[in-house]
Design a protein around this nucleic acid. Structure first.
Lengths: 184, 184
DNA sequence: CGCTACCGTTCCGTTTATGGAACGCCTCCG
DNA sequence: CGGAGGCGTTCCATAAACGGAACGGTAGCG
């Protein structure tokens, strides 16, 4: 089926994501096509990856699903990756909530290595929510552990570490909370 | 039928962004088209907004510019607002982690109103991490509460609610976990 | 049973995005 | 000067995305 070796953004991935989103919402293909004002044939083809949708078509679909178009594209070929080779954090979003700023990262920690991070500014806190694997993180001298569905929170103004418990790679979200220090 | 909702993803806007990015890099239209392996006519049309590019074409262009595809779409705020007027969820990112899909939302809940949400498909779970305020959420008949830094998790296959405890607006992240529904 | 109502896929004529080859326009030399 | 080589746009045959109308499959129901 694949005439060429897996293009970066391949239609199958996009289609699969669309189909999953549609099914998660309990809408039939016909119904979604009707609401989006496109042909069933088109939607079927897009979901199966056998078509290469135009921007307009893709917009019509995602708009009806109520998601931004970017949500169905390949997850960020994200330029911003901090930390070292044990832990990798990609910045997803920045929120400015008046006096504080939140930075939301997706965090992956590889097993077997301990990642150290120097302290940040005073008042900075980190919240980590684990969704797979078991993470050990926090202040270097007093780290905490969390399994799937659990979270860790600490003030990040001293050196802290990230490591895994066990051999499984850890997937988590990391939320950094920066209080606004006058001016900045 | 549908009063056409002012096309958010306007080809002219997309084209203008592409042109600006290209010019910022000091590359000519011909040169970019050559590198991206597309026709000059195509790139010209896309930049002028007179064409409706396919995903493949758009990918070829953005890849050569070294930016994620999402960068040329309506950039900052493309807020999906699900739920009602008490709770507002903005989809930030979709992760495909093998057999499951995660959708990460930013959640805001206004005080004083209770938001109800119908059940999702079987196996869907919701994880909420609260940053500020105190949230009461979960299955309608057995909701849970969480304050700043705390965490709520439940299976979302029955009706569930979101409301605040107290007068403060609640800020949180919502992680929806969708198990893979059959085939793909 | 047939009849209806959906579902998702496939067929097919129409529409349109595509890229090669013009085009007109510049600037840079010989 | 004229010619060469760059630019961005336009022309046009071809390929492909589009939607309407089939199709087979699966309930529900009298």
């Amino acid at each position: 089926m694949d005439p060429r070796p897996a293009l970066n953004t391949d239609p199958h991935e996009v289609g699969a994501r669309l189909r999953r989103m549609r099914q998660a919402r309990g809408i039939s293909l016909s119904e979604l096509a009707r609401r989006a004002g496109i042909g069933k044939a088109t939607l079927s083809g897009v979901e199966n990856g056998s078509r290469n949708p135009t921007l307009e078509t893709l917009w019509a679909i995602t708009a009806q699903l109520g998601v931004p178009l970017a949500a169905v594209l390949d997850p960020p070929a994200d330029p911003l990756q901090v930390y070292g080779k044990a832990a990798e954090a990609t910045l997803l979003q920045v929120f400015d909530e008046g006096p504080v700023t939140f930075e939301l990262y997706r965090l992956r920690v590889r097993p077997g290595i301990t990642q150290r991070s120097p302290g940040h500014h005073a008042g900075v806190t980190e919240h980590i929510t684990v969704f797979s694997g078991t993470l050990c993180a926090g202040p270097a001298q007093r780290p905490l552990t969390a399994g799937p569905g659990e979270f860790i929170k600490w003030t990040a103004d001293s050196e802290h570490i990230y490591t895994t418990m066990g051999e499984e790679e850890v997937h988590a979200t990391l939320l950094m909370r920066y209080p606004l220090v006058d001016g900045v």
